[in-house]
Design a protein around this nucleic acid. Sequence first.
RNA 1: GGAGAGAUGGCAGAGCGGUUGAAUGCACCGGUCUUGAAAACCGGCAUACGUUAAUAGCGUAUCUAGGGUUCGAAUCCCUAUCUCUCCGCCA
Length: 441
Amino acid sequence: MVSELQCATFISTGILDMLDPQILRADLQQTAEKLAQRGYQLDVEAWEQLEQSRKSIQVETEALQNKRTTISKSIGQAKAQGQDIQPLLDEVAQIGEQLEQSKSKLKEILAEQEQVTLYTPNLAHDSVPVGKDEDDNVEVRTWGTPKQFEFQVKDHVELGEVNRGLDAESAANLSGSRFTLLTGEVAQMHRALAQFMLDTHIQKHGYTEYYVPYLVNAQTMQGSGQLPKFADDAFITEDDRYLIPTAEVPLTNLVADSIIDAKDLPIKLTAHTPCFRREAGSYGKDTKGMIRQHQFDKVEMVQIVHPEQSFDALEEMTAHAEAILQALELPYRAIVLCTGDMGFSATKTYDLEVWLPAQDTYREISSVSNCTDFQARRMQARYRSAEMKKPQLVHTLNGSGLAVGRTLIAVMENYQNADGSITVPQALQPYMGGKTVISQV
RNA sequence: GGAGAGAUGGCAGAGCGGUUGAAUGCACCGGUCUUGAAAACCGGCAUACGUUAAUAGCGUAUCUAGGGUUCGAAUCCCUAUCUCUCCGCCA
């Protein structure tokens, strides 16, 4: 649980952030409708009232401020010329109290508005199917054909036991439920997968590798949209740091509070990190095996791009994630998430789902999102070119390339043999000392 | 963990209670000169919000952040964060 007190420490920038205040102002009704598609109810009337009082009070405050500054300056001048300043002091004294009142009122309203914008999700792109939940997601394409097995397939838990590589009991004893302990060749394959993914993104897809902190502060979590709304999903330390739920958090925030030269775009970053999630609200889901864990490894891709490029970049990044599955020859399908199933910061998301023979279904293994300027606004990440008068917000994207644990599961299940041994995919063999099969049978 | 020093514009670096959004240099942009380039010289060059048709004017805020003192704060006080130096500890 995150206490009220901790929530109160969330960083106020003093600016109206998050959802573009200009958009909220320009076409409030339409914005509210778009938000409703995502299951978010914006109180239009309350917002309009807030806006009205903000306007009048801000104008009033600034006028008072101006008056005081002007008088104060003339006090300085009068003093320098040796004139009597008492009349001026009397005059300014009256403004003081009025100004204080006006100021604190304005502060209150701004804080209220910030609360609204901080909790408001990104707007969905027009190409995103409108829908309520995952049932309304739309399949975009499939790749590969699920293999027909001549024998009764085992799931990854059984395969892990057979090969003495997956020990749920020890993990539970050490840490509790939703943790995994890998040993021997299975642990080796897990490591090999991460290396293979990282090398592919660096060598073939043009990403720069990063090693990042696994603990970040509240400001950073807020920048990429995890806070304040999803505080309960994250692990927090006693000194108010958060275990990263994904490398997206530190990678994306690398450009926070900066103005990037347009010719340095796009910026393409990747990192292999553990990810920590409370999995609050997922009780009873995927309790068996290592599908849903408090700790899992992931290779993450992040791109910081020119606003006009972000939808092309979304396709490109999705292809980068698909390239890993293709190299491993794992059948999968790509789906586009509907408005109701998308994450908070995303305007459009593709999920990749890998075929799991034991479940006889596709399961999520990667999620690639275009966040447009939503995170950039929270982080104040902008770019500038010579022709531009003002810096503009960049667009940010992130995607898993891929979730390592789930990829391990997919390899184990798709590459299993009748005796319970597991063939090592060809692409992975160089990363496993040339080993072609895992077998403790 | 202990002791000390510091945080100013894209960068470097002045200012240390009044007319300072902030000297100066570098970088960058425009121009003069030049066959061209360099050099030299001239000019320009922060961000956000408000008002507005306006990326025009005008107003407000911003010298790490948050409080305070004051008619007035980059300048004084308090707190937090971060950086550096030394000691301790440690992979």
